[in-house]
């Protein structure tokens, strides 16, 4: 992790959701307000040109982080900096737009993320119009320019210019995801947040989309924040990886380090649960317990009820991410104290 300014810096970001019952019911029942800490004090940074992935099980807060970064949700606290500029310091729309243009998002469900009543051409052209990305004067001139640009984008993602006339329902899931990618590229971003972009697709189609994304990254020097719960996909695409559990990051490491030497007990548990396609016949330790209710997370380290090496301190005190070496950061008391873990993990 070098000293140059990262493209994106997320610093101590929190996002809470109010999940209380309606006000009146709550007051009548004399219940306190309920806050769900979807993202609770998360920090990481992404360098230009890299793919940084977030993994973790359902509900751990991955999509919330994605939405915070692209500005779909405001943060409850903390800061998000893009090329050193803190978004929260930009109050005016016209200051925000040039930065916002440079980051876009691709969603998991290719069908619902595309407006079914719009032609593909208009779907892709929308960001071009919204950000005024044409440079010739005159309406007809810019119309032609948009037309050509959309055709170029369609071809770039492996579709044909003629597909612009069609509607989303005329395409398969994989093709719809290509359309989403074309739309994301339309604003000429350098940073794309990809929230489970292939989770709804079959593996053979997933391979096509992942290859396309890799190609585009190389050609256009894109930076990706990639979100997935599929560890094999994450292994394939990432440079660096953050593992999340209940709204917090428990480990950040480069890919090779994380997969060859996972340190946090949760990371180890997660890796142990992956179906083994190599059929090495390795003995697995059955994973115990489930993800707790995020509204009432466990005290201290929220992983302690499932952790085989938890002790009293773990129940009491929340571990913070600490730099272990130049490759990884881990939030675990056992690692800090060098507790013996090997008896519990193979």
């Amino acid at each position: 992790m070098s000293s140059e300014t990262p493209l994106l810096k997320v610093d101590a970001v929190q996002r809470f959701f109010d999940v209380s019952k309606p006000w009146l019911n709550r007051v009548l029942a004399n219940e306190p307000k309920l806050l769900l800490k979807a993202v609770d004090d998360i920090s990481f940074s992404i360098r230009k040109g890299e793919t940084f992935s977030l993994v973790g099980e359902s509900g751990c807060g991955k999509s919330t982080v994605a939405r915070l970064i692209v500005g779909l949700y405001p943060t409850s606290s903390g800061s998000i900096e893009f090329e050193g500029t803190d978004f929260s310091t930009l109050s005016k729309r016209n200051q925000m737009a040039p930065l916002r243009r440079r980051m876009t998002m691709i969603f998991q469900d290719p069908y619902t993320s595309l407006n079914p009543r719009w032609r593909v051409r208009d779907i892709i052209a929308e960001p071009i119009r919204a950000f005024g990305l044409t440079n010739t004067g005159g309406i007809s001139g810019s119309r032609l320019q948009i037309f050509n640009r959309v055709a170029e984008l369609l071809e770039q993602v492996g579709l044909s210019a003629a597909d612009g006339d069609k509607y989303p329902h005329e395409f398969s899931g994989g093709q719809c995801q290509r359309i989403s990618i074309a739309r994301a590229l339309a604003s000429e971003p350098d940073f794309i947040v990809c929230d489970e972009p292939t989770s709804a697709l079959d593996v053979s189609v997933q391979a096509q989309i992942l290859n396309l994304m890799k190609n585009l990254q190389r050609e256009l020097e894109l930076t990706y924040l990639f979100i997935s719960h599929d560890l094999a996909v994450v292994y394939h695409v990432s440079d660096n990886i953050g593992v999340m559990y209940l709204g917090r990051l428990c480990e950040i490491a480069d890919k090779e380090t994380l997969f060859t030497n996972p340190r946090h007990p949760y990371t180890r548990m997660l890796f142990n649960a992956i179906p083994d396609i190599n059929m090495s016949g390795k003995e697995r330790i059955p994973v115990s317990g489930e993800v707790p209710n995020p509204i009432e997370p466990p005290s201290g380290c929220t992983f302690h009820p499932r952790c085989p090496i938890a002790n009293e301190r773990c129940k009491r005190e929340r571990p913070e991410l600490q730099i272990v070496d130049s490759h990884s950061q881990v939030a675990c008391h056992a690692i800090e104290e060098k507790r013996n873990m090997e008896v519990h993990f193979i």
């Binding site: 997933q206 391979a207 292994y235 394939h236």
Partner: peptide
Amino acid sequence: LMASIPVIGRKMKYLAQIDGS
């Protein structure tokens, strides 16, 4: 199908891909 599945520990720039659907 097998070749298009990403596998942990198998380093490859691109996944094998079957074109079309």
